[in-house]
Write a protein that binds this DNA or RNA. Sequence first.
DNA 1: TCTTGACTTGGAGTGTACTCCAAGTTGTAT
DNA 2: ATACAACTTGGAGTACACTCCAAGTCAAGA
Lengths: 139, 139
Amino acid sequence: MIDIPETVSTIKQAAEFTGLSEDTIRYYEKIGLLPYADRKASGHRTYSKHQLEGMVFLTRLKATGMTLEEMKHFRKLYEMGEASLPERVSILIEHKNRIQNEIDRLLETQRMIDFKIDKFKEAFVNPDLNKKWKSPFAD
Amino acid sequence: MIDIPETVSTIKQAAEFTGLSEDTIRYYEKIGLLPYADRKASGHRTYSKHQLEGMVFLTRLKATGMTLEEMKHFRKLYEMGEASLPERVSILIEHKNRIQNEIDRLLETQRMIDFKIDKFKEAFVNPDLNKKWKSPFAD
DNA sequence: TCTTGACTTGGAGTGTACTCCAAGTTGTAT
DNA sequence: ATACAACTTGGAGTACACTCCAAGTCAAGA
């Protein structure tokens, strides 16, 4: 059994792949969210495919509202090994629930916007309505 | 025709009703997102039911990702009157689309989390799998 | 009247997450 | 050999959205 050599990326390629900026990747490493990256002899960072996938996973968590601190905690658990699996699962389930609540709120706001758009359109077609119906916009 | 007298609220009641803090309401007024509030003789702010509804609308836009600057722009249009109705409608439609994209991203992340939870559970039941399958978490 | 709590202002301070910079080193193409 | 781009570091600066504070005024009950 031989290890399949993984293609190795520069920080620039990592940034392209993940959508993070190079500065952000270095920043994440600095605050301990990403582990100290492997280096070439020159000191330049290198990333494996596996690491890039991990970063993308991070971006998904972040984009869905997880804070950097929570992600750091999750990573700490990951480093503790198998014993932390149950807690990691419960964190993910909890996060999934938060996402669901967020989706519900978004859907509700969409309905509210639709209602408002309808009102606007009515008011546009028949300006008289505008006098009776005052749009609530904090005034 | 007589005006139905609207019940008038203090800033404290406004904060309770909207979920914003009193400081935040004053801050929104300071930056021009809310108009200069009506005052009692004492100088204390008062809010009508209509104004409270407007504030709740604001909180919905904010909670779905609209920035304070965008909301200020929307309010400016509102103050310009009927002529701005088409632009206001298009802003709302645009925002609705942004919300839809956000929902899509959230759903996708939920699926990703489900996949990961399954993997974790497998690894927990059968620790051998954990050796073959490395969780990508940026390491 | 006295006290207690609510409200006022302008401005300073905070938390999160970057983002940029200077000064120096390394890698690559000509 | 000489550019020139890519990379390195520590630390400073920025953007957004609040959040808190001091010092003072106002309102309502005992």
